[in-house]
Design a protein around this nucleic acid. Structure first.
Lengths: 138, 138
DNA sequence: ACGCTATTTGCAACATTGTTGCACATATAG
DNA sequence: CTATATGTGCAACAATGTTGCAAATAGCGT
């Protein structure tokens, strides 16, 4: 049985935007994009609503994960299939703004007061990335 | 030399809203409030702009610190004078929404790729708090 | 106790992020 | 190729946060 479409296994209709975003995430593993960044990259040729809904669909399919960034912008990055269930920290450069998954690490446990229960953890490390650090023109 | 006002040492004019918010933060150490929560608590008797500007002033005075919460809402909590410089994790209950400082803990170090530099870290643990865990009526 | 002035406030307008309802368009099963 | 379940675009909306400017006021010196 041959796949009709390279992404058919995701179990949803493949439309131009979905195809474009899936390709983008696959080509940029470990890089997180916000809705407005995705919108820019796709040449603003799709309605913002559709981008948001596509993001939600890809989240529901566990194809991407959500990162809460500084100043309350949400970003999304490809899931590492090996470690989908394991939370990893994220790094955001305060100069260029890029957000990366630190996929080779896991978020350590923090003891909670008695009676408290953990469900999920969001760890954002902010600083300067290697590109901005070595860019003397800035 | 006697203080003219209990909060005069912060080095700013004390106005009704500032006084109210300072009292609120002092009376609720380790609890984080968003602008809309602060606005509700003060009976919505102040302009939102003024609340935002007061928050900014208190941040600049290093009297409170900022927490980036789920879905991109910013919250603010009193600084622990002993550990102002040390980052601590925060806990948010997914049921009642309350955000607490885990001030008895510190955020562990995470090794970054070569050339990367840390400036600050935001760790939000989400789960169920003791009150919501033991509230069987929910 | 009072006036002066730098600081604060309230208002209006705006930007950005994100959501929902509904009519129209289209991907894909048969 | 067609039918229809699914997806898209548009319009409207909600929430959060910012800026500019004129009016109000905290708190200084007198």
């Amino acid at each position: 049985m041959k796949n009709k479409h390279p992404h058919a296994e995701l179990g949803m209709r493949i439309t131009p935007l979905r195809d474009g975003l899936i390709e983008l995430f696959l080509n940029n593993p470990g890089i997180a994009f916000s809705e407005s960044e995705l919108n820019d990259i796709t040449g603003k040729s799709f309605d913002r609503t559709t981008v948001y809904r596509t993001i939600r669909t890809l989240l529901n399919k566990v194809f991407i994960h959500k990162i809460v960034c500084e100043e309350g912008v949400l970003r999304y990055a490809l899931n590492d299939k090996i470690n989908v269930l394991r939370n990893h920290p994220h790094f955001q450069c305060t100069i260029c703004g890029q957000v990366k998954c630190l996929q080779d690490q896991y978020i350590k446990d923090y003891p909670l007061p008695k009676g408290y229960e953990v469900m999920n953890v969001n760890l954002l490390i902010r600083g300067v990335c290697i590109h901005c650090n070595s860019d003397t023109s800035r």
